[in-house]
Amino acid sequence: MLRKTAVIAFLTPLLLLGSVSGSLAIADEAAITKGKKVAFDRKKGNCLACHMIDDGTLPGNQGPPLVAMKARFPDKEVLKAQIYNPLEKNPNSIMPPFGLHNILSDGEIDAITEYLLTL
């Protein structure tokens, strides 16, 4: 009896932890799915106009291919800032300032960032 209780006491936090991380993973998954949708949407991110991405068809090549993003942007905030306002780093950047000019909402930029970091 005592042993059983101990086992349950030991397992419960693990189970709880498991379910919490499970829902986190689901949230990430949702953000990533949303991010890809916004990135590919011609009226939203329209990233394929200029970047090769993932399985997107007929990509442009104005900008660099979006590959190895985690290695290129170890700091998520740097990537987010680049999408928000590329003029910050380079006033001649050809990339639209998606956040500064409200082309995308902050939530959409967050989602795209999550998605890009999976590439």
């Binding site: 394929l48 106009a49 200029c50 007929l58 990509p59 442009g60 090549n61 104005q62 001649n92 050809i94």
Partner: peptide, 14 residues
């Protein structure tokens, strides 16, 4: 000029 100068020759989609 962004598109037809520095961007000229590049692809926007196809």
């Amino acid at each position: 000029f962004d598109c037809h100068g520095s961007g000229s020759g590049n692809l926007v989609r196809a």
